[in-house]
């Protein structure tokens, strides 16, 4: 590996050590509670949503909600965010399995993630009316977890195009850009438009992935 290639200390770390899916499996009690919270937030925001509302929406008792999430509303919200990110990444992984060019792969990942977040009702409500609360949700620790999760899930897809260190680093890189452009929109790059995502990939990402790290694609 040359000095200029992407190096990732993460490659040395076991990604398997990450916390288990905090959103819980689909259909689990945890997942029912987190998606109930998101529906409430999409309707009237996080600050007006009570545990009572969430319990009613999820069809469980308040005691059950507190047993599942002793940390209360904020803990449910953090789990919900991570759960949403995981389900987005699961969908992306499937969509990307048939893509055979690295440029297309990064473009689609960025474009679809941005569209998902743009159409997300709970997120939209918070961005428009509760931006302070949204900032708190995107704390350092939460961002760490979010970027690590993105790297973990994107890795198998990206390994088709590049070595392991690059695959981990590029997965996090894409996640950083999506979070940045969704939370602070740019007039220059609207990642919800495919051509803008592609332009960003060509302009900043591809030049940073050095040739030795890329696997040669059959033409």
């Amino acid at each position: 590996m040359t000095e200029n290639s992407i190096q990732s200390p993460l490659a040395l770390m076991s990604l398997g050590d990450l916390p288990a899916t905090s959103g819980g499996q689909t259909g689990s009690a945890q997942a029912r509670v987190t998606s109930a919270l998101l529906r409430c937030v999409g309707r009237w925001g996080l600050s007006k949503t009570t545990i009572e509302d969430v319990a009613k929406e999820a069809g469980v008792s308040r005691a059950t909600v507190y047993r599942l999430f002793p940390g209360g509303k904020n803990a449910i919200m953090r789990a919900a965010v991570l759960g949403e990110v995981r389900s987005l990444l699961a969908v992306l992984t499937v969509e990307l399995s048939g893509v055979d060019q690295v440029e297309d792969c990064l473009t689609v990942a960025m474009n679809h993630a941005a569209q998902f977040l743009e159409q997300h009702q709970a997120l939209s409500f918070m961005r428009d009316h509760e931006s302070g609360l949204l900032d708190q949700l995107l704390s350092s620790e939460q961002l760490d977890l979010l970027f690590l999760t993105a790297a973990q899930v994107m890795k198998p897809v990206l390994l088709r195009f590049m070595d392991e260190a690059a695959a981990i680093a590029v997965g996090m890189w894409v996640a950083r850009l999506v979070v940045s452009y969704v939370s602070e929109p740019s007039a220059e790059f609207d990642l919800c438009k495919e051509q803008d995502s592609r332009r960003l990939v060509r302009m900043f990402l591809l030049p940073g992935i050095s040739a030795p790290q890329l696997k040669h694609q059959p033409s």
Partner: peptide, 27 residues
């Protein structure tokens, strides 16, 4: 230092400056 320089060179500057990184051949 080495790892931090590498991130700056590849993820920050490769698309911005001419000699920032060993650029891959023009896609």
């Amino acid at each position: 230092q080495v790892a931090t320089h590498s991130v700056i060179r590849t993820q920050f500057l490769a698309g911005v400056l001419i000699d920032a990184s060993e650029a891959m051949p023009d896609p």
